[in-house]
């Protein structure tokens, strides 16, 4: 129905970009260990993260925005992880999923494990747990969305 009223909204371009980015975070398949199973469960139909625009897991770093590091980062894997992170285009985000990725977890002081992926790449959101539930990872993604929209996470 036409009423003649010109309905319009004013906003800034930055807000629009942030809104767009935060609702189209395509994760990068980076399952390194058992946490990957929970990451797959997060992506699957029961706790579908496509509700937040993150349904497409890309297998290429060039096409992804978010690296969910899910699983123990070994010293041998760390240089490869760093290279794949470098190949991702900006803006890029990292979620550290599970205690192994946060500070070594049960492998703390182990000879072959990196004590936290934040020694290799900058981390935006830490999701603790061994492994974190799919709900926790979903919450982590929502926190990241809040961070992109420059709001305080609840």
């Amino acid at each position: 129905m036409k009423t003649g009223d010109a309905g319009f909204i004013t906003t800034t371009l930055e807000n629009v970009l942030e809104w767009g980015r935060s609702n189209s975070i395509w994760p990068f398949t980076f399952g390194l260990a058992c946490c990957a199973i929970e990451m797959m469960a997060t992506q699957a139909s029961r706790l579908d993260i496509s509700r937040f625009g993150s349904e497409v897991f890309r297998n290429s770093p060039r096409q992804s925005d978010l690296m969910i590091v899910s699983g123990t980062v070994t010293k041998k894997m760390a240089p490869r992880l760093k290279r794949l992170y470098d190949e991702m285009p900006y803006p890029k985000y990292v979620i550290a999923m599970g205690v192994c990725v946060i500070q070594g977890g049960p492998y703390n002081q182990g000879y072959s494990v990196v004590m936290g992926v934040d020694r290799v790449v900058p981390v935006d959101v830490y999701v603790p747990g061994c492994p974190p539930t799919p709900e926790a990872l979903t919450h982590g993604i929502m926190l990241l969305q809040d961070k992109i929209r420059k709001r305080e996470g609840k």
Binding site: K75, K76, A78, K82, R83
Partner: peptide, 26 residues
Amino acid sequence: DLSKNQYVNMDDEGNDRVSFDPGDGW
């Protein structure tokens, strides 16, 4: 000897490099 940490880095060709220097690799 578990007290001596070893650190791994990779060159451009993908060959691993191991050293005892914490500044070189992870």
